[in-house]
Design a protein around this nucleic acid. Structure first.
Lengths: 314, 314
DNA sequence: ATGAAAGCGCTAACAC
DNA sequence: GTGTTAGCGCTTTCAT
């Protein structure tokens, strides 16, 4: 059944025929047992309901499937659950683990590395030797947002992030401010950070309610969810985009493109991330001793109506 | 390791301690091999990006995990892929298969049944002996929608479904019309079906563009996605809900509750569906010969602004 | 080109 | 209460 046996073609054909006639299915448990590894890949997801996460998750499933592997998945709420989950994956002798949530606890990651099991983190900074990572180009994303807002004539810029801060949010914010630096230094612009209490629409809307105590005409948001929430919150105060404030989100999730929002945003390439993650996983499986790799996947600016004057191609 | 061995407590403790000190992890492949079954449950999903599907999917993951089982998942595009997928699941000797997409091909389902592997279909009509199903109460959903629209004073009703029709859509439509029957017979109302070219927002919006050639003041949609699309499409023609037309959706997905839509809808209980599905699966595992069960999970009317005059509790 | 045998890690059954 | 053994289904290796 392994496809590697040295038998006459005719014999092979006869046995395969018989097998299919009998409805025989290889027992992957037995194969895995014998080969000391399974074709199983563990995927750790968190908040799979969030539209961007769902898209990334789906891309991972497709990618795994396309490579003839089988996904083992676990949704995880907190770090403790992550521990249990990875341990469980280990019990199934997965040939790799893809983590889309939280930084993998160092101990577990090291254990995986020691066992020769590749771990790849998605959209997370990790500095664990032997753990690869693939992330969207937050730097370019932040810069594109800054350039677009400046080009649209905004002078009072803000960044809406989540209280406490996520890795991605911080990276985007830092890149945004860095790209703004010359304008700030020249006194051609101001910048202030805004904080939402959570990552969701509600929190974005709440932030919009109290955003007007100082001038604000250009806002870059850590995610589309926050941006759409802010937009709705702003509308509740009678404001509109881009009339009163230009807004740029991040992710390019489906709802952001729909009629009520038409949000200008930075698109993440979920399929690209997934493909790179799978590739890194397999490469490390071949060469476990290789130094850790951090792969950056390009992002693109999607021009829509929440920023004025962007329709000409730059 | 099985937890069933008859040993002195002290001995057990010592070996467990040693095991954890060594970082030992049971090999579930070996256990599965020996026990002739694994703790693996196969989940078949389709279109996991759709917000309702994503919610159901997440509920299933949680449910499986809560019961100490491990999810094996595959996203599936077409019926052929379903075939391959279920075959693959069989190879891993899953102890059950949960299908959220398409009717499981009879042949495969029968093969599972013969192998004693429970198959549960979610939100699908199945009439395969030995295959259980759990679905939302589309009948009550349709009736609640009809009652709400009539109570709101609508006289020219419509149902927006998807061309070709899905099982759920047809069931909802039929129940809606059935509940309308008395009013129709008495000449107090009219009804007409509307067809969207696809299941998504775009298709709903397109349907709204050509909905006004005949009177329409109350619309029940097969899904929230369609309803929101229709709403946006209607707005593009200068119409609004509930001013010009009352609208009720189905699913209660997150975006439907947000400011731009505030859609009155029928809420499906994803967690309830997942819990029942898991329960049915385990029950059948115990008694494979049991006749097929179809479990119906209650739905509730969520009153929001797209239907007027509903805020008093009925 | 084929057959035979060993062994992957585990657990249930049986002997002590 | 504990030690031993057989065997789950598979693949790889060695012998024919």
């Amino acid at each position: 059944m392994s496809g590697q046996a040295r038998v006459a073609d005719e014999t092979r054909e006869r046995v395969l025929e018989a097998a299919s006639a009998l409805g025989y299915q290889v027992n992957m448990l037995g194969r895995g047992m014998n080969r000391q590894r399974s074709d199983l890949v563990g995927i750790v997801v968190r908040g799979a309901t969030d539209p961007y996460r769902a898209a990334l998750f789906e891309a991972l499933l497709r990618e795994i499937d396309a490579r003839g592997l089988q996904s083992l998945v676990a949704e995880v709420d907190d770090e403790a659950a992550l521990d249990r989950t990875i341990a469980r994956f280990l019990q199934y002798r997965v040939s790799g683990v893809l983590v889309t949530s939280g930084a993998p606890p160092i101990a577990l990651a090291e254990q995986c590395a020691r066992l020769g099991i590749p771990v790849v983190a998605l959209n997370r900074a990790v500095s664990i030797p032997g753990v690869d990572a693939v992330l969207s180009d937050n730097e370019t994303g932040g810069r594109l947002a800054a350039e677009a807002l400046l080009q649209a004539g905004c002078r009072h810029l803000g960044f809406l992030g989540v209280e406490g801060g996520t890795y991605s949010g911080l990276a985007r914010s830092a890149a945004f401010v860095a790209a703004l630096a010359p304008a700030l230094a020249a006194g051609r612009a101001t910048f202030r950070p805004l904080l939402a209490a959570g990552p969701g629409h509600e929190a974005g809307a709440a932030a919009a309610a109290r955003a007007w105590d100082a001038p604000l005409d250009g806002l870059f948001c850590a995610s589309d969810l926050l941006a759409c929430g802010f937009l709705d919150g702003a509308r509740a105060t009678g404001r509109a985009a881009p009339r009163d404030v230009s807004i740029i989100g991040f992710d390019d999730v489906t709802p952001a493109g729909l009629a009520p929002y038409r949000l200008t945003t930075i698109r993440q390439d979920a399929a690209g991330l997934a493909a790179r993650a799978a590739a890194l996983m397999l490469e490390r499986a071949e060469d476990p001793a290789r130094p850790a790799v951090i792969d950056v996947v390009p992002v693109t600016l999607v021009r829509r109506e929440t920023v004025a004057g962007l329709n000409e191609v730059t």
